[in-house]
Nucleic acid binder design. Structure first.
Lengths: 198, 198
DNA sequence: GTCTATAATGCGATAGAC
DNA sequence: GTCTATCGCATTATAGAC
């Protein structure tokens, strides 16, 4: 919906006014260097503007980071809402999985920043409204009153999703195959299974 | 072996000369704020010394980061060596899994820094000697000529290992249970399995 | 809405006393 | 082996011209 199409037409000089351009550039740098390792200067250079121009849109660097991450979180919350409306745990898990994998694969770098950047984690921890996303996600996938193993499993899966997104060994995997593989892995980990031979 | 025991006796003023103390403090900060988000000042404060004192041990910040990560990588390489000496893919995977999970659980924060800090990733990419660890690890777990699904699976598992280590939802899980759960998940993901009902 | 210019602070790193 | 002091530079952030 809010795809990259609007800004993809050409190398035209669009200005920072278009938030999509800023988000796209900042995100790429955040994913590559982390938010702490990315200066406003780097973002400004990438956009062909000056640092000061960025301060017209965002009062602080923290707000910029949140601004980049927020749309992704909101998309995730919509997935969770839709999933929570389903009846039956199995249907809920399935809905979360498909929605989550889709958002994550489309988002690529965004999810990396979201789960593995300490600064972002800290910022989200301070905004309880945004924090809900993570908590609800875990609750839906782990089910009610999850034991230790279930919690570890969910945590491993959610964290692990980022791996294939930027692993050079998986660079040749196209989005469709990545989606279906991650989905299969999610089902294998999160849906009831036969216990392994012991 | 080089456990935390040597420096754990009391709050005694040990000085930076003892590398274990420096590594411990730096690691905690790296895991919490990322390497870019951790200044030498923060490390020095944590140790009760000045920035300048750190420069006696390490010429640059990069060298300090590598110094903290290296012992962990070497431990990992020993695990890989031992595993590679086994006969049969199944035994190799099993050996890598048990060794890896043990090192990761004991290392805790170290693995977080290793897999999710962009600066560390970049530094390791420049030292081909250290880079071997990651490559060999993937090769051993994914097997010869792995298809896309196998590569995605290995990547998800290796990245996912960090999740439960610092997820608050898993904070109550003790090391032993964590180890056995991660091991079970690894087997489930990386050893041949019956295809799911489709 | 973007610029130049600059303030204020913190950074990594060095020099030299002890 | 650790200190104080400092250099040079990058950083976040602001003020004011256009």
């Amino acid at each position: 919906m809010t795809a990259a199409g609007s800004a993809a037409s050409a190398g035209e000089r669009r200005s920072v006014t278009d938030p999509a351009r800023l988000h796209e550039a900042a995100l790429r740098l955040f994913a590559q260097h982390g938010t702490s390792g990315t200066s406003l200067q780097m973002i400004a250079d990438e956009l062909g503007v000056t640092k000061a121009a960025l301060y017209y849109r965002y009062k602080t660097k923290d707000e910029l980071v949140l601004g980049v991450v927020r749309p992704f979180l909101e998309e995730l919350l919509r997935v969770l809402e839709a999933a929570a409306a389903r009846r039956g745990r199995r249907a809920q898990v399935e809905a979360v999985l498909t929605g989550l994998v889709d958002v994550v694969v489309r988002g690529r770098g965004l999810y990396v920043v979201l789960v593995s950047d300490p600064t972002v984690a800290h910022l989200l921890g301070e905004h309880p409204l945004l924090r809900r996303a993570g908590d609800e996600l875990v609750a839906l996938l782990a089910g009610p009153d999850p034991d230790a193993a279930a919690r570890v499993t969910v945590s491993l899966f959610l964290t692990g999703l980022v791996g294939p997104l930027h692993d050079p060994a998986c660079a040749d995997v196209d989005d469709e195959e990545l989606r279906s593989t991650l989905l299969a892995l999610g089902r294998r980990l999160l849906l009831p299974h036969r216990a392994p031979h012991r």
